[in-house]
């Protein structure tokens, strides 16, 4: 088998696993299948429940978000509205499967108009992206674009107007971009200018093990707050006013004030 063949086989295997959650894991009648899936409204998914042949019953913690039904040994779910639902399938008193369904809203981008001077950058925030996101500029002579974390960063190249298209696997959003001549203006304002560099990123990634990639969750979401608000919260921990003796306060002991400032600046627009 050549390396390429092997890669292809592996990819096919992944495909079937990703598409049919039923085959995920090595469930036998003695184990409980625990799975999490993310769906967009309207999506459906199904999985086979390991059972010893008895009748299966289910509970659904959030019928408004997800509808669920079991037929034979197949559990089918349909995503109805954004939210989370826990589906538990039981055979008699034995729990056979637990499925955590997160129904996401479609991707949004805000703001959808940006004004940026030549040689500077402006950014719009992407929320609820589903699958890989691609951003393209209709006229790269006027503005170029790249993705950094949850932001689409637009850099002005020459005065003019163009459209930036942001697309995930389901949704396409257009952002109208106006690039003004260089030199004037106070900077700030509008969509907020960003350096477009990686300043503070590696430092801030120390927070991701506990607050999720790009500060997106975990104990608390910490991205997207203003730099001032974040610094205030961090100082509160350092002063012993917030969860004294907790791991967050302990963790912050290890940074210099300048490092915390760089982290807060980065996290305000990751």
């Amino acid at each position: 088998m050549t390396k390429l063949d092997r890669l292809a086989t592996f990819a096919t295997l992944l495909f079937s696993l990703a598409a049919i959650p039923a085959t995920v894991g090595h469930a036998t009648a003695s184990t409980t299948l625990s799975r999490s899936i993310v769906l967009l409204s309207g999506d459906g998914a199904s999985m086979t429940i390991p059972s010893a042949g008895g009748p299966l019953g289910l509970t659904n913690s959030n019928p408004a978000a997800v509808s669920a039904a079991v037929s034979g040994t197949t559990l089918s779910v349909t995503a109805l509205a954004p939210g989370k639902a826990a589906i538990v399938v039981k055979e008699g008193r034995k729990t056979r499967a637990k499925l955590k369904v997160t129904v996401k809203a479609p991707m949004t981008v805000a703001p959808t108009t940006l004004a940026v001077p030549v040689a500077e950058s402006a950014q719009a925030r992407i929320s609820n992206a589903f699958g890989p996101v691609v951003a393209t500029s209709a006229d790269t002579a006027v503005a170029t674009v790249y993705l950094d974390g949850e932001s689409v960063v637009v850099r002005g190249r020459a005065a003019g107007a163009t459209t930036v298209t942001v697309r995930d696997s389901r949704t396409t959003v257009s952002v109208a971009v106006t690039v003004s001549a260089p030199g004037g203006g106070s900077g700030g304002g509008g969509g907020g200018t960003v350096s477009g560099t990686t300043e503070g990123r590696l430092l801030a990634s120390n927070c991701f093990q506990c607050h999720g990639t790009y500060g997106s969750g975990g104990f608390d979401r910490i991205s997207g707050k203003s730099e001032t608000e974040l610094i205030e919260e961090l100082n509160e921990f350092l002063a012993g006013g917030e969860d004294p003796g907790g791991i967050m306060a302990a963790h912050l002991q290890g940074y210099t004030a300048a490092q915390l400032q760089a982290i807060a600046r980065y996290l305000s627009h990751p």
């Binding site: 992206a129 699958g131 790249y146 993705l147 997106s216």
Partner: peptide, 10 residues
């Protein structure tokens, strides 16, 4: 947990 993020294109 945490969210999924895009792989930037350029």
């Amino acid at each position: 947990g945490s969210a999924l993020f895009a792989v930037p294109t350029n």
